[in-house]
Amino acid sequence: MNPKDYEQLQTQLSPKTPILKNVLKAFLVGGIICTIGQAITFFYMANFDFTERTAGNPTVSTMIFIAMLLTGFGLYKKLGQFGGAGSAVPVTGFGNAVISAAIEHKTEGFVLGVGGNIFKLAGSVIVFGVVSAFLVALIKLILVTIGVTDW
């Protein structure tokens, strides 16, 4: 049997990814997390001196705090198994990636373990975010400078 025939055989016998089911679960879980975020935003707007725009920052911090509790008590991985991208894409998923790595590497000490590995999973998100933001701003600056567009 060659690898090509084998690929066919194993694909036939392996369970298919239930895409529709996964998408529905991601929609549900992601939607609920964002709705909770909306409630927290309203809370900060009602009780503190925040506007719709500025309430984003404390909302994100609060969501990551909740992610810490869920991760620490071993619940976020259960949510992740059910929700897939629904729990990975919201900022709580970013928090979970950072916090789970921090907790995991505690045994190697706080400097080499926690400090050195905290961005092991989430680091690529920061790197690609920063590089793409740099390029976006650079391109826009060039376009404005040569007069193609304005700010």
Binding site: G31, A85, V89, P90
Partner: peptide, 26 residues
């Protein structure tokens, strides 16, 4: 709920149809 859910749906499709890892998707 709807907009947040839909962005997550795009993420799920990238993972399930595009066969990307969570790190690539994010």
């Amino acid at each position: 709920f709807v907009v947040g859910g839909l962005i997550c749906v795009i993420g799920q499709l990238l993972m399930d149809v595009g066969k990307l890892t969570p790190a690539h998707t994010l």
